[in-house]
């Protein structure tokens, strides 16, 4: 059995509990190559958990995760780590920059891990600062950035390696509405240009409206929209 060819990223009946707390209860989700997919739903419904499973960060207790025709959940951590480094970019919901590094070193990190030369990695990293309205902040450490600035630095770090799939968890959560729009515009423009597949978790309809399609997570499941169930 192989993953549906139409889909680049897929979860099949993924279930995962944290101790006694079921976070996912058989979630199904597919994203096509080049698609920007919004995952919305109430707080605590399992959006972040599902994203982490799709991205090979967490392994579901049962069910399957597929990427590009490969089964992901059966891989060991070293293989998943390589897969993430080579194909995925992430923007996490909560703190994620390495505090000891400067902002530009943080952005350059994925390139350095992929063994790029330091000078070219830093030059590539710096090119993102202007685009994200972060000029002048290249040398700051994460403790010296505002929440919104740190979030944009994290986005730059996710995009710098031109990943095939970008997993973004509330990437505009800490931004005011105009800056948030600007960041989403940039994310969408960059994804369209590079053909990046984006799985975007947000509880804001305004952010979800940047995606091609929306799925809703409720109680650990991706709810088939009633609309679709009616078959109309």
């Amino acid at each position: 059995m192989s993953a549906d060819d139409d889909f680049l990223v897929q979860a099949r009946e993924a279930a995962l509990s944290f101790g006694q707390t079921p976070a996912l209860r058989g979630a199904n989700l597919s994203a096509r190559a080049g698609e920007i997919l919004a995952v919305t739903g109430p707080s605590g419904s399992g959006k972040s958990t599902l994203l982490h499973c799709l991205a090979g960060i967490l392994v579901p207790d049962s069910g399957e995760i597929w990427f590009d025709g490969r089964r992901v959940d059966t891989l060991g951590e070293p293989e998943r780590s390589t897969l993430r480094r080579d194909h995925f970019g992430f923007v996490f919901q909560f703190g994620q920059l390495v505090p000891e590094l400067t902002a530009e070193e943080n952005v350059a990190l994925p390139l350095l891990l992929a063994k790029s030369r330091r000078a070219s990695a830093l030059a590539e990293a710096r090119s993102w600062f202007g685009r994200l309205g972060l000029d002048g902040l290249e040398g700051r450490r994460s403790g010296e950035l505002s929440g919104g600035q740190a979030q944009r630095v994290a986005l730059a770090r996710a995009l710098v390696s031109r990943p095939e799939v970008l997993f973004a968890d509330e990437p505009t959560g800490a931004l005011d509405s105009l800056t948030g729009e600007h960041v989403m515009d940039l994310l969408v423009a960059s994804a369209r240009q590079e053909g990046t597949t984006v799985v975007l978790v947000t509880h804001e309809p305004r952010v979800a409206a940047h995606a091609n399609r929306e799925v809703i997570v409720r109680d650990g499941k991706v709810t088939p929209l009633f609309v679709e169930r009616l078959g109309s």
Binding site: R206, A209, E214, F226, L230
Partner: peptide
Amino acid sequence: RDPRVYLDIQRAAHMERMRELTELRR
């Protein structure tokens, strides 16, 4: 009747319009 059926249908219509406006805004 289950109001969620209706709300989901309406939500889809609203999101569709919102995507159009978002594209226009871009």
